[in-house]
Design a protein around this nucleic acid. Structure first.
Length: 345
DNA sequence: CTCCCGTCAC
DNA sequence: GTGACGGGAG
């Protein structure tokens, strides 16, 4: 048998085995899937794709439910204040996702009526939607045949084909695109189950660490598995040194309230409410009381934060702070790490 | 420590 | 084409 013919057969086997596995063992009853007989909602699919980027499924689902309850449709989202939107994203991180969704919702609703994109290339024009997300949304909503190439797929395909190019390189991207294009199911109507299955395979079986190759439906066409070298793929990016930033957080507080400032000058936590920040070598106010020091790894640097409290009799602290009742902090955009710092008070 | 992925600046 | 950036969870 020629090599090409063999490859076609293994591509076919890959897709069929994957879809059959997905039908039996993939995730079911996802909250963004339509109930029986209902049409799929592009807004929910879109939100789920954005929320589940960089976020574990279990965590994401809880936020998804809460978000949908408050913003049941795209018009609702478009007409809401950004601060409200951010407060429902608070704790998920990567807050640019929420800001971009809000912007995109306004675009979708501009012109007086709701106008969702009908193709991957149109989805991609919206802020916050890249190649992979656009393909996934259009696969689910209009059965468009586009290869999704999220981190799950990159991991699966790099292992299957022993790709040695580093994650993020243009070469790897190109190779995976070609391979994935061959994996696409014949029928457009199989795009949703195919897309869901490959994502589930990456999340449940072909995991970053400790992949469950014994349970994998496509291990027989996985070159790295056959050689016992699954751990070598995909080839990771070079590590970069993380700078450490020493800061002090000063939190004036009364019995029932705390004082925060709105982050404006920094891209990090922009528009979120955070403590007064003092650089390492500046003076800590005399009245401040040291509470705790903790490290907070951000993507490319490490925060080394000392938390100081100032107990106030009245809510009259200088410096543009706003006072918040402890009881309604949940309604405000506040990063998790700030909530953690507050818990030391 | 590692993992997630889209955007933007160069 | 490459790399910095961003946050939380495991």
């Amino acid at each position: 048998m020629s090599k090409i013919l063999k490859n076609i057969h293994s591509d076919l086997a890959f897709t069929n085995n994957l879809i059959n596995w997905g039908k039996s063992f993939g995730r079911k009853n996802l909250p963004w899937n339509p109930s029986y007989g209902k049409k799929i909602d592009p807004y929910k699919v879109w939100l789920s794709e954005i929320m589940l980027q960089q976020t574990q499924f279990r965590t994401g689902v809880k936020y998804f439910e809460r978000f949908i309850k408050h913003f049941p449709n795209v018009k609702n989202l478009a007409e809401s204040e950004i601060e409200t939107v951010l407060s429902f994203w608070s704790g998920l991180g990567y807050y640019a996702r929420a800001k971009n969704m809000h912007k995109a919702a306004k675009i979708i609703c501009s012109g007086g009526k709701v106008n969702f994109p009908k193709s991957a290339s149109d989805w991609k024009k919206l802020p916050g939607i890249g190649f992979s997300t656009a393909a996934a949304i259009s696969a689910f909503t209009v059965n468009e045949k586009q290869p999704i190439m999220d981190a799950n797929v990159i991991r699966i395909v790099a292992r299957q084909h022993k790709l040695i190019e580093r994650i993020g390189s243009a070469k790897l991207q190109k190779k995976i695109f070609i391979i994935c294009s061959k994996h696409l199911p014949k029928s457009n109507s199989d795009m949703p189950i195919y897309t869901q299955s490959i994502m589930d395979l990456g999340a449940l079986i072909c995991r970053p660490k400790e992949p469950l190759c014994d349970l994998c439906p496509v291990s027989e066409c996985c070159l790295s598995f056959l050689e016992g070298k699954v751990g070598n793929y995909p080839v990771k990016k070079k590590k970069v040194f993380k700078n450490i930033k020493r800061v002090s957080w000063i939190i004036p507080h009364t019995q029932d309230s705390i004082a925060l400032v709105q982050s404006k000058d920094s891209k990090l936590w922009e528009n979120f409410w955070i403590p007064i920040e003092i650089q390492e070598n500046n003076l800590i106010p005399k009245k401040a009381c040291f509470l705790k020091r903790f490290k907070l790894p951000i993507s490319n640097f490490i925060f080394d934060i000392s938390v100081w409290g100032i107990l106030c009799k009245r809510k009259n602290f200088e410096g543009g702070v706003r006072w918040f009742k402890n009881s309604n902090l949940n309604e405000k955009p506040i990063p998790s790490s700030v909530k953690k710092a507050i818990s030391f008070l």
